[in-house]
């Protein structure tokens, strides 16, 4: 499997003045392979966004190395190469719109990369189809719902043909329907286009079908592995001020009461487990 992201002992501190420092991330090592769906969990201020910013060379580590597609983010001359490969979608959909017509908004990033016109038109059409917003092409993005705006933000990234898509709490401001719309698009990109996805979230339920989950607390990775491995580590989850998905919590409660039930991640698994008792 091809490594697309590799972090080796990465640390980063925020320096507000000469002698004041706050830890962003501390001694992080991890790898992400091409096509993986990775979820990064952690409470506010745990270092998730700092980590995300280190991945597209917004921030350069104080110590250690961040290697994206074989390029070290310290190589200043290749920063744009990295940023064209790592697309980021942020939390607030209203802050990510640059143009007053949707197709212009989608074209903006790719146009800045110097994509020629015919290719640009092709990419805009394709990206809008992927996020299922093609019917809105000629309209303004400002009257859309939050979920639709985030899909436009994702399409704008897609038009740049990134290899890695990072969503930094991109579902936090959406209602349940909007959240589902965005997650559907992201899952589809991952399974159908083989896009590597890093999803940063505080919704535990969004982590259950990830390939890999990392939990961050105070700048460090405190648990990692498959969703099952991570949520079985109840202590680490609670110490990181997070919660278990409810289905998982219930399966653990039943197990503690002496029932022979495996650790469950989803409602379906839990129901299956209970029916077998």
């Amino acid at each position: 499997m091809k490594k697309v992201i590799e972090l080796r002992n990465v640390s980063y501190d925020y320096k507000s003045s000469a002698d004041e420092r706050t830890t962003g991330v501390k001694n992080i090592s991890l790898t992400v392979n091409k096509g993986e769906f990775v979820v990064l969990l952690g409470h506010n201020g745990s270092g998730k966004s700092t980590l995300a910013k280190l991945l597209n060379a917004f921030l350069i580590p104080d110590q250690g190395d961040v290697i994206i597609n074989g390029i070290n983010t310290k190589e200043e001359k290749r920063v744009f190469e990295i940023r064209s490969k790592v697309g980021m979608v942020f939390q607030n959909p209203d802050n990510q719109m640059v143009a007053s017509i949707i197709e212009d908004d989608i074209a903006f990033g790719a146009e800045n990369l110097g994509v020629e016109r015919q290719e640009l038109i092709r990419r805009v059409d394709w990206a809008l189809q992927v996020v299922n917003m093609h019917a809105h092409k000629k309209r303004t993005p400002f009257k859309l719902s939050g979920g639709q705006k985030q899909r436009i933000a994702i399409a704008a990234i897609l038009a740049m043909l990134p290899e890695i898509l990072i969503l930094d709490e991109s579902t936090a401001m959406l209602d349940p329907k909007g959240r589902e719309e965005v997650l559907d698009v992201v899952r589809k990109l991952n399974s159908e286009q083989g896009m590597t996805v890093i999803l940063i979230t505080h919704y535990m339920e969004e982590a259950v079908d990830a390939d890999k989950v990392f939990i961050m607390n105070e700048g460090e990775i405190v648990a990692s592995g498959s969703p099952r491995e991570v949520f079985d580590n109840e202590k680490a989850v609670y110490e990181a001020k997070l919660e278990l998905p409810v289905a998982c919590k219930i399966s653990h409660m039943l197990k503690k009461d002496g029932f022979d039930i495996p650790s469950c991640l989803t409602v379906d698994e839990l129901v299956e487990g209970i029916c077998r008792l």
Binding site: G42, H43, N44, A172, M173, H202, L242
Partner: peptide, 8 residues
């Protein structure tokens, strides 16, 4: 509580 983490 929109946008806050579980403990928030």
């Amino acid at each position: 509580t929109a946008g806050l983490d579980p403990s928030g």
